[in-house]
């Protein structure tokens, strides 16, 4: 019988995932496809924002969407009707996407000719923040009804995001929600984050978001 070996490994469990994510990011950079990881709680308006975004960039950007859900395919059909190439990923009960799942989804979607691909991540403010999917930008949505205290409760999500979209601003006045307090809470965690209050339903504030998106795609392809 072989002797028992004790091996000092000291390897970060997510190191493999991080390497796979970095390789994916580089491949997508060469192809000129900007991958954006869109994260939020369930019901914050991810699909509504995507549909409004698709309408706003129609004819200017070709867009793909990977819908990640534990089950169902209602969201993929919804964004297809607004002109996106879409695939539905089922995570099989997992609470997030990682780089391998994302790569598999991109293969199925086919990135040829796409300027931008959105990952509509599983609705959850905790787990998706922990895993690098290979996306070049991270955008999170907080809907006004969720409250301005969320950066205090889910700090990592707010720390890792490049953009914090504050959705459903058209109904904010009916809730106990202060945009100033929210901005203060986000800034305490992430001074660089772009904060964009908007309503995908009324169109208020959408221009800033669409301009950001067009600028990021141009820079990525530059």
């Amino acid at each position: 019988m072989d002797r028992i070996k004790i091996i000092d490994v000291h390897e970060d469990v997510l190191a493999n995932n991080d390497r796979a994510a970095e390789a994916l990011r580089m491949r997508l950079h060469e192809k000129g496809t900007l991958l954006i990881n869109l994260m939020s709680s369930p019901g914050s308006g991810k699909t509504t924002l995507l549909n409004a975004t698709l309408d706003a960039v129609a004819g200017r950007l070709s867009v793909g969407v990977m819908e990640a859900d534990v089950d169902s395919d209602v969201d993929a059909y919804a964004v297809q009707r607004h002109g996106a190439r879409a695939v539905q990923l089922h995570t099989g009960g997992m609470c997030h996407l990682d780089a391998a799942m994302c790569e598999q989804g991109l293969r199925e979607l086919g990135t040829d000719g796409l300027d931008v691909v959105f990952i509509e991540n599983v609705g959850n403010l905790i787990c998706p923040a922990e895993f690098d999917t290979g996306a070049a930008r991270k955008v999170m949505i907080l809907s006004a009804p969720e409250g301005h205290d969320k950066p205090l409760k889910y700090p990592l999500m707010f720390e890792v995001s490049d953009v914090v979209i504050v959705s459903k601003m058209d109904v904010a006045e009916h809730f106990d929600f202060s945009l100033e307090e929210l901005e203060r809470n986000v800034r305490a965690r992430n001074p660089q984050a772009r904060i964009m209050p908007l309503s995908a339903k009324t169109g208020e504030g959408m221009q800033q978001w669409v301009d950001w998106l067009l600028g990021e795609v141009a820079a990525w392809q530059g």
Binding site: I7, E11, V13, A15, N16, C95, D98
Partner: peptide
């Protein structure tokens, strides 16, 4: 919250460690 995902990544890493050693 994401314990199962972490375990899958651990197993992947351990499979590599096993091959190397």
């Amino acid at each position: 919250m994401h314990e199962l995902g972490i375990v899958f990544h651990m197993i992947e890493t351990l499979e590599t460690v096993a091959v190397q050693n």
